[in-house]
Write a protein that binds this DNA or RNA. Structure first.
Lengths: 339, 339
DNA sequence: CTGAAAGCGCTTACAG
DNA sequence: CTGAAAGCGCTTACAG
């Protein structure tokens, strides 16, 4: 348990240097010595002290994952891939949560830079508007991979979705199915993905020459089912007539659907509803929810790929080429929009 | 950015020792020196090298969180509390996933012990049957907190639910609402919580003198909505008559409900359905889902409390008292069971 | 109140 | 092929 190189060395009548080199497979150590060291080490279950190693190599074998929140089902969907892959490769993953606060996000980045993590994988908080901390990361030669909520103006690795196009497709799907008075429950004001989905919605209306009506835009701060229910009630009580609804995410759509179900508003006959994200449960509501799928199940794997590519390039002193991976989106038509 | 004690010391005409002591608020340093050091340090944004500090103190300020999977909505629910509290206290959280494998779980524990994390917070994998690694943790004087899926025979901190009682209450609720032929979609065979919920179900039947029928027990491996749908179909196709259904979790219940909705089986008139866990979405399905709530929103905070208590006791050399925190459960009656 | 010095457990140029 | 030695950035007994 309390094994160290020194103890192994004295046990095997070697120097600590020889043991260290043997373990790291240096070419200048005899095969026989390597074998002796490796079998002994396996026997006693020695594992190197990562902190001591770090002090010399400056390589922590650690990746920091910064999430704006953990209630989003996105996390669970991508986290497992990242964690499993990381464990397989011997990386540690440090997870932390910015709580959608730019200030906390910056503090976390600063801390991880000081700890000299090998990489930072993050989805930006919805309130982040200044990107100086991202520049800091890159000038520290720490590998940065942004996903989901990303910064357009910073030239770094990104795994992201074309939210505007996806929202355009979603809204067009409603229009194609006969809707002309389409409401939108939009996400918070600052995050780019929320803005882009709103813009996609607007563009769809525009290109079909449908009038835009600001009364039909409602703001969802939290994006959960409860809020979807409340916003639907607001629309209903204000007697705002709609025949279609496009929501920022599936949870909002499901909450809204529940409200309309209660009131006897027929879905999709009276109102067609469109979610976003193709969450697990969306196929199993009654009626089942039409939504937009965006390959989120592959996201974790892609993030790790991008990260490892850059690490590899750095190791071999190759030029670093920033990767921008755009996820595809696909409208999933289900009962909530098919009359 | 590349600040170290040495540089600060030379800048301030002090020794590194004095700077270190000033930062750690040692009593033998003058107030004036402390102030000089602290203001300078703040100005340049110095943060100590945690690895170097570790090498001396053996305190890593790191907690490992081991989860059997991340798709369970439990994670998201408890993770945020843990992460935010940890960040506030300056702890790092290392997250990893055992993929419900005893072997990976043990490997992870071993690795974290070698890294000398301050504590390990874990929910056991469903296949774990040998607890030697838990004993290892304790003999390493690493703080251990088990939650959710815990080990009954190991004397360590636990934050858990009385699954049997909760399932008993859930099944009794169905019986009280007129059900006498109650099916159960149970969880996997090995995890204790799955076994206990099954036993609670059995006990409820027993105490109401209702016959037990093994045909009405279906095994859910994954526990998602898709599986709930499939299992409901199996029951239906086999023409097994039931008037009630108690599911291992809400996702299964929602999937089953969708199937019955499709077939025109009336809920709750023909079949009453009971979930487990009070997930976010359960109140917003149509009909809304009755379920069992178990204070999961407070779980993360309680876990951290237990962890910090033990750390505090260790620091002050007090005797360590193992804490076993039992979460309360409460039946939430909604439309799916109220005729 | 302050500083010189040792040492935590590794890795790696360098010497042999 | 192997070993002696320095040093990564801290903390802490000890001396003054």
């Amino acid at each position: 348990m309390k094994s160290s190189l020194k103890q192994i060395a004295s046990e095997l009548n070697l120097s600590t240097a020889a043991v260290s080199k043997a373990l790291n497979d240096y070419p200048d150590i005899s095969k026989n010595t390597k074998k002796r060291v490796n079998t002994y080490v396996k026997k006693i279950g020695y594992q190197p002290n990562t902190h001591a190693r770090f002090l010399r190599t400056k390589k922590s074998q650690t990746i920091a994952l910064i999430l704006p929140n953990t209630t989003d089902s996105l996390l669970s969907t991508i986290a497992e891939d990242i964690l499993v892959k990381a464990e397989y490769l011997g990386y540690n993953i440090l997870v932390s949560c910015s709580k959608e606060s730019e200030e906390i996000e910056k503090r976390l980045v600063n801390r991880f830079l000081q700890q000299k993590v090998d990489g930072i994988i993050m989805s930006l908080s919805s309130t982040t508007s200044d990107y100086s901390h991202l520049v800091d990361i890159q000038s520290n030669t720490t590998t940065l991979v942004l996903f989901n909520t990303t910064a357009r103006t910073v030239n770094c690795n990104r795994v992201y979705l074309n939210d505007k196009e996806a929202a355009l497709n979603a809204t067009n799907h409603l229009i194609a199915n006969g809707c002309s008075q389409i409401a939108h429950f939009r996400g918070p004001l600052t995050p780019q993905n929320s803005i882009d989905r709103y813009l996609g919605y607007r563009e769809a209306l525009n290109s079909s020459k449908l009038p835009f009506d600001s009364e039909k835009i409602l703001l969802a701060e939290k994006g959960n089912a409860e809020e979807g229910y409340t916003l639907a009630k607001t629309l209903y009580n204000k007697k705002i007539t709609i025949d279609g609804l496009f929501c920022f995410n599936d949870a909002l759509a499901l909450g809204a659907m529940r409200f309309f179900n209660e009131k006897g508003v027929k879905i999709p006959k009276d109102i067609s509803i469109m979610g976003f994200g193709n969450s697990n449960i969306s196929a199993y509501s009654s009626p089942s929810l039409s939504t937009v799928d965006h390959e989120i199940s592959t996201m974790g794997a892609k993030i790790m790929e991008v990260f490892l590519d850059e690490e590899q390039s750095k190791k071999e002193n190759e030029e670093i080429v920033v990767k921008k991976i755009l996820l595809k989106n696909k409208v999933i038509a289900r009962e909530s929009t098919l009359k």
